[in-house]
């Protein structure tokens, strides 16, 4: 009899203690789910800098976790939300489905995905239109060597990455309508060897300017470029520190600025779930040159590129944006 009562007590305690919907709140807390290592000097590193900026500028508590697969996305979203984090950022297009799935259970947490189009009462995409900058880089490549070829190496073939390549090619064709651009994907974000091999193959087929958007595998692209003496373009963050002799310029996102703005809105209760778009016109997206290789770009080309960037900012040139 006593045993059965104890068992019942145990079951009740278990059920109560394990309630997944509990929401404890102690101060404002922000979490980041990165799809790769924050040491990638690119996409993930930039997001981590953004998270630290939120911590320092708003004086709030932050946390970060590396998540690789949709089940891990969901697990991390759920865990942060149940622990009462008010803002959880899934860093990439791929986090949308998990955010939409978890969000109804945690109405008091805002789920932000960087890229995407999914909007729910507490889910919103923060879209970085890196296309603005890759368009300018494509134009730069085609102007530097009008009879050459350019190429791009990506991690996974997802809209947010493909979009940067489409704009890169459109930029090149803006300079010369039949400028050839070849694209290759390695099917993941970590394999430096695969990125290097893919780049070498593209160079063997005549590529002279390579743009990479492969996160932690990106340095493999720079390595190949350095080996064969061609120039590369970085993405998401200033990347000429990674390969000072190979990276001519980078398409850069000012993620700290964007994260702080959103986090401040959420913190102050002013946040409205809607697609947020950051562009070159806002100053969040930019092209940053490698000062050590400034001599590679002739003055007239530099002038025209700057003029094109101004036109992109003024929206007098149409940059193709990815449908997300």
């Amino acid at each position: 009899m006593l045993g059965r009562r104890l068992l019942l007590l145990f079951v009740v305690a278990f059920a109560l203690g394990g309630c997944e919907r509990e929401q404890r709140s102690t101060g404002f807390r922000v979490a980041l789910l990165s799809p790769g290592p924050i040491s990638d000097a690119g996409w993930n590193a930039a997001a981590y800098e953004g998270l630290l900026a939120v911590r320092d500028q708003l004086g709030v508590e932050v946390s970060q976790v590396e998540t690789r697969t949709p089940p891990e996305f969901e697990e991390a979203f759920r865990d942060y939300a149940r622990r009462g984090f008010q803002l959880v950022i899934g860093h990439g297009f791929e986090f949308q489905d998990a955010a939409a799935k978890v969000a109804p259970d945690f109405p008091r947490t805002v789920f932000l995905t960087t890229s995407g189009s999914t909007v729910r009462p507490n889910v919103a995409p923060l879209v970085f239109r890196l296309e603005d900058a890759t368009f300018v880089l494509g134009y730069l490549a085609a102007r530097l060597q009008p009879d050459g070829k350019a190429c791009a190496v990506g991690g996974m073939d997802i809209p947010s990455v493909r979009g940067t390549f489409v704009a890169f090619e459109a930029g090149a064709k803006h300079a010369r309508p039949d400028y050839p651009v070849t694209v290759s994907y390695i099917g993941g974000w970590d394999d430096l060897g695969a990125a290097r091999a893919a780049t070498l193959a593209l160079i063997d087929r005549g590529c002279r300017y390579v743009f990479q958007n492969a996160d932690a595998a990106g340095p493999g692209v720079f390595q190949a470029a350095r080996e064969r003496g061609i120039y590369a373009f970085g993405s998401n963050r200033v990347q000429h520190e990674v390969a000072p002799t190979a990276v001519l310029a980078s398409a850069v996102i000012d993620i700290p600025h964007a994260f702080v703005a959103v986090a401040r809105d959420v913190k102050d209760g002013r946040f409205q779930a809607r697609p947020i778009e950051e562009t070159m016109a806002d100053g969040t997206i930019a092209v940053v040159y490698n000062p050590a290789l400034a001599a590679v770009v002739p003055a007239d080309v530099r002038h025209d590129v700057d003029a094109l960037a101004a036109a992109v900012r003024a929206r007098t040139v149409a940059v193709p944006y990815a449908a997300l």
Partner: peptide
């Protein structure tokens, strides 16, 4: 280990 990252801030590496 997932929780170790999320709760204690230990890096994935």
């Amino acid at each position: 280990s997932g929780a170790m990252q999320r709760v204690a801030g230990v890096s994935a590496v």
